[in-house]
Design a protein around this nucleic acid. Structure first.
Lengths: 345, 345
DNA sequence: GGCATGAATGTGACCGGTCACACAAGGCGC
DNA sequence: GCGCCTTGTGTGACCGGTCACATTCATGCC
């Protein structure tokens, strides 16, 4: 292809039309698979399309048709495992549907900054997926103008922050419930919790699940320790908890926090799982290789991302059926970091 | 704003023009800051723009002007720390320049699959940034049509795979050199290397730096062990190396590999750094919190991403000066996992 | 006072597609 | 043989901007 050498502008449908001896509208019909085109004509046009290396101009298509075949993901974070995996799932599904994926990072949770990002994203694409696991994301979801198609990836479906917007989620509450039950079943009197920042100022879904499991077991309910997202926050929280000798089991809001907690316990001379059991959340790739390897709850973030895109896709093209909000089921993975409390605990 | 309630289509420049009693061209001049508009007219138009909530349609702008103010990042990976951080840097710089950022994942390194992704990216944006640390990325960079602006993020600047395309890089060779020297200076007879998959089939920059340091010190040159990207590969490599009692120092191509190596050494009863010293690459967020904490080389991935965008920005807008390829300097971070060999080595 | 000059503004075509509609030719029923 | 429907194709307007050029009007200069 490109035999003529000094080809500058890519071929348009009118170029193809001229070369094939038909009108541009006929070319348009061919590339859109319109039925009423004589087979011989279609063949000829297709041949010219191939010869000229014609590709339909996405910008012109978007302008003329009003739909852009592009979605933008708004997220506060791109490097954390969970967020990055969701993004990966979205991209995967979008690629399969020939959609372009844009990304916008919510650097700050400031109202004006968030609004600006939402605007930027709205300008660039026909639909939005907002990862609303944190205050910035929640605010962004709320700031999306009503007429713009959007799907939220939210922490919990009860009283969704975006009103009646479609959303996807994983059952974090149940997952936390299960992990807590696991630790209790090993014989621990109670389970302490190091929390990730919640999407709302009130308690998040993971905190709720943990608390419910304690209540059901009649175990004492310690105050959750506030962590951040990263290992540094877990480390600080771990140092605080290590001071209390009655602490024998710690559930962490994610694996990064758990890593920090493990480190803090190591530094203070408490063995895991001998003195203290630790469980995380997410099953990040490194968790299986830590020493001790980390008991955690595996979340299907990639599947969550795919589901989010599928939902948005359904909204954008009436043709595509809108799947019911799919709930992926988290799975407890028991590893070395959890075990029964020591006799002399 | 949006007082009228049932506003449907967003306002266009002609809507603004009508409301302000001027022609659409005058509105265009105002939003583009053209000098020859009477101040009173400008005021009036700006007021109407504000009142109608007018935003310039990015699609129409792209179609009419030919430039799209959007770049697409092609990468084989979105979840690994290094890749994700580069992406973050790109997004940051793009946001500052009011550019949209798209993302395309190279799921396979197959020639046709890669070509299809490049096409998709080309359709969606005016410029590409290709992360060419791996075969898929290298192939993608080579497949970019000559007329499309592109910047490569490459492993090593010598004989760049993309020909005369602009590129950015960090000095991985020098970084590996420094890390190896560090281990040798502790008294180790030699340093073994667990390699990441290189961008080319031949030796990568990190391997070269490691080898050079060994040669300069007159140390024996063991064969590098081939790892993959993740901890699983490091674990397998670590088990192999652990069999050899003469191994006292291991340099790993990245922190994930190092994590797997640490785990393998633990499983085989070798202490770190007592029996074996381990060093990684990248300084991922969790590396400081491992037990033992990981000696590694900190790479400024975010800065690298910013530089990549700056370069592409310069190419896309003649106005923006094309900065010289900036080399960010990696920094050795010494932690617990490296120390002198035991006397009875 | 006539005219070149530049500032301020408007008009028409265009970017590359889509959409609504017009129109010619062929098959069928009556 | 006429009308009518269907099939295949072409024409003009439009999406929302930009660009090149035309036009109007107030100045400044000789």
């Amino acid at each position: 292809m490109n035999v003529t050498g000094h080809t500058r502008r890519p071929a348009s449908i009118r170029d193809v039309a001229t070369a094939a001896g038909v009108s541009y509208q006929t070319v348009s019909r061919v590339i859109n698979g319109h039925p009423s085109v004589r087979p011989s004509t279609r063949e000829r046009v297709l041949a010219v399309i191939d010869e000229l290396g014609f590709r339909r101009n996405a910008t012109a298509l978007a302008l003329a048709s009003g739909r852009s075949r592009a979605v933008t993901v708004l997220t506060a974070n791109t490097t954390h495992y969970g967020y990055a995996s969701i993004l990966r799932g979205i991209e995967e599904a979008a690629r399969a549907a020939s959609y372009a994926v844009g990304i916008g990072v919510l650097e700050s949770a400031d109202e004006p900054a968030v609004a600006a990002e939402v605007q930027r994203a709205a300008d660039a694409s026909g639909g939005l997926i907002v990862i609303a696991y944190d205050p910035a994301g929640v605010r962004a979801l709320a700031a999306v103008p009503a007429e713009l198609p959007v799907v939220g990836v939210v922490e919990t479906p009860t009283s969704p922050p975006g009103g009646d917007r479609p959303w996807v989620w994983t059952d974090d509450r149940e997952a936390a419930h299960e992990a807590t039950r696991h630790l209790l079943s090993l014989g621990h009197e109670t389970v302490h919790y190091v929390a990730i920042p919640s999407s709302t100022r009130r308690t998040g879904a993971r905190t709720t699940g943990w608390r419910q499991a304690l209540q059901e077991a009649g175990a004492p309910e310690p105050r959750p320790v506030q962590g951040s997202w990263g290992p540094a926050g877990g480390h600080a929280a771990g140092l605080r908890l290590a001071k209390d000798p009655s602490v024998t089991a710690i559930l962490c809001g994610n694996d990064d926090l758990a890593l920090g907690v493990l480190r803090a316990l190591h530094e203070t001379g408490r063995s895991v799982p001998g003195d203290v059991s630790v469980a995380g959340f997410d099953d990040a790739p490194h968790s299986a290789y830590l020493t001790p390897s980390l008991t955690t709850v595996r979340m299907d973030f990639t599947g969550l991302g795919r589901a989010a895109f599928a939902l948005l896709h359904g909204v954008l093209e009436e043709s595509a059926p809108i799947a019911p909000h799919p709930v992926s089921v988290p799975e407890l993975v028991v590893r070395e970091s959890s075990g029964p409390p020591q006799a002399g605990g």
